[in-house]
Design a binder for these strands. Structure first.
Length: 321
DNA sequence: AGTGCCGGGGT
DNA sequence: ACCCCGGCACT
């Protein structure tokens, strides 16, 4: 859009491209994967520096990206610039931690930059929610298509276990969650966005208010595949629950998990291959995820960098899908 | 053809 | 348990 924006993007791309020494013995096959995928130690500095200095750049890039198009691939960029390099440590250190978190934590690291970019889509009349024009769930990369029939109204439903309160404004919902469930002061106006995880946005068909739950899918039907959102070992759900909450299920919400383990109401490991309603396990094998696995990321050489599972030709446990 | 990984083997 | 690999499903 704007020259500044493209500059921001270029900056990011450059940052990613610099580190992997091309063909150097120690250089690792970073070229194979997403650019920064295999950045080893040296790039850690680069990444840090980048995210530090480029607070603005990143925001700009984010702004441009969001306004250009909100494809998941694009949204995946920011994490790719600095998230991957801890791979060698983080992956190893936290194999047991609910595994689904490991990849989504990439994105979680970036939630911080979001609130500041509230003017990312200038054309959108800013909704009550000040943090993000798209409401809650942009995080996982689905653009939440806003276009609907004229007779729909956006409501906000509390996803807290056995609450289900529905409010008409996101700010009200945030306040509700803050006070009711998070035990915070209502007047404390600082919202770290944590509340976002506990409510979802629904388009309520005004004409058919009676069918209640049936209209609870706030996102397009195509968005049922959250990119890189691994369900750990979750067996296929016999059928998809009503709520499409795969996007709203934070494996572990950022912030104090101390009080009340804020479990997502329904961790829905939606399966790409299984159409909703199929009760029979549709495939013997687990469908191939779109995540790049060790082999692809690190290449056949540098096999020693693969996770053990990959080395043993088992299901990759580093890049879960 | 390349990739992911199940199943089955060896140590 | 750890490690390897044939072979197949999938892209």
């Amino acid at each position: 859009v704007s020259p500044a924006g493209s500059a921001g993007i270029r900056g990011l791309a450059g940052g990613a491209a610099v580190a992997p020494g091309p063909g150097q013995p120690g250089g690792h096959a970073a070229g194979a994967g997403r650019g920064a995928g295999a950045l080893p130690a040296p790039s850690a500095l680069t990444g840090r520096k980048l995210s530090g200095k480029a607070g603005i750049d990143e925001v700009m890039a984010a702004a441009v990206l969001t306004s250009l198009s909100a494809s998941p691939l694009v949204l995946g960029h920011p994490p790719a610039t600095h998230a991957p390099e801890p791979s060698s440590e983080v992956w190893k250190e936290a194999p047991a931690m609910s595994s689904s978190c490991s990849s989504s934590s990439n994105t979680s690291g970036d939630w911080s930059w979001d609130p500041s970019s509230d003017r990312s889509t200038p054309s959108t009349p800013s909704p009550p929610l000040s943090s993000h024009p798209d409401g809650t769930h942009f995080v996982f990369g689905e653009p939440t298509p806003r276009k609907r029939k004229n007779s729909t109204k956006v409501m906000f439903k509390c996803l807290w276990k056995s609450c289900g309160k529905v409010l008409s404004s996101s700010s009200g919902m945030q306040k509700h969650i803050r006070t009711m469930h998070l035990g915070r002061k209502a007047d404390l106006e600082q919202s770290d966005g944590e509340e976002d995880f506990y409510y979802t946005e629904l388009d309520v068909d005004v004409d058919a208010l009676t069918d209640g739950l049936s209209s609870l899918t706030p996102v397009s039907p195509t968005s049922s595949v959250p990119p890189a959102f691994p369900g750990p070992e979750a067996p296929l759900p016999p059928a998809l629950p009503i709520l499409d909450l795969a996007l709203a299920s934070p494996c572990s919400p950022p912030g104090p998990p101390g009080r009340s383990i804020a479990v997502a109401p329904h961790p829905v490991p939606s399966h790409p291959r299984c159409p909703p309603g199929v009760t029979v396990p549709c495939a013997r094998r687990r469908p191939r995820g779109e995540a790049k696995k060790c082999r692809k990321v690190y290449g056949m050489e540098h096999r020693e960098m693969w996770c053990t599972a990959c080395r043993w030709k088992k299901a990759c446990q580093r890049f879960l899908d």
